[in-house]
Amino acid sequence: MILLLKATYYEILKIFNRMRTYIGFATVTLLVPMIMYLAHRFGFDVQDQALRALGDSVMFVGTLVNGLLVSYYLMNVLWVHFPFFIVLVGGDIMAGEAAAGTFRVLMTRPITRFQILTSKFIATFFYTAVIVFYLGIVCIGSGVMIVGGGDLFVFDKGILILSQNEALFRFLIAYGLAVVVQMVVAALTFFFSTIASNGIGPIIGTYAVLVVSLILSVIQIDVLDTVRPYLFTTYFDVFFAPFADPIPWREIVQKSLCLGGYIIGFYILSLLVFIRKDILS
């Protein structure tokens, strides 16, 4: 156990000593405040559109267009765009060592393959959690600073306006669930990384599966109804669930368990492959 913890610590250290790790952080740091500035400068008319029906009777005080609203909309990057930063690091975590030949050095140590793989998996989880929460912190932080704070305006069986404190609590849950969602992507790319011998294959492989699964999940064709429950992307929308009122905990737990099943499934597959794998490079 101590060896596993030590190995995990050094895996995290390795991840955060690599340039590619910071591509995601740098992109988030640059792009998100820029988007916030543009939203602040040019705004968008979602409030007027949505509340048009009431406009003749009431006047609106304050604005619903604020940093939290932009942050909420920015969560849409979690579907397809943000996973790139996950696969960029996760795809290389096993394949990178295989390609660089460092597995040879690692495996001559008194550490088991189970411990090596598990430590890398935990480190991948750690990176995923850190970058997802970093996205959340930068979105909400820069949003509140640049666009301003206030109530969060979302759609849920109509219009739902959440107070700022309530919205922040919902964001916390949402980003926690986003970690689970992104961890499925990480686990998939981790699996591909285990069977690949370079870092490019897992990135392409993961994206191919992700995009195809998303398309199959999104397209509303009856034929696909039987397939859809088996696609992990079907449960990806769980990170928007906390913005319902009341919070649909049952749905969140069910979807999280499904996603957790995929994470464990990909982990076990990776383990089976890696334990039997001959290190020939």
Binding site: N17, R18, A100, G101, R104, T108, R109, P110
Partner: peptide
């Protein structure tokens, strides 16, 4: 794998974490 705590090895070319 405990036995490998008593064994040192250099296999083929030495590869390290370059970064």
């Amino acid at each position: 794998k405990k036995i490998y705590a008593r064994i040192g090895a250099l296999v083929e070319k030495p590869d390290f974490y370059l970064y």
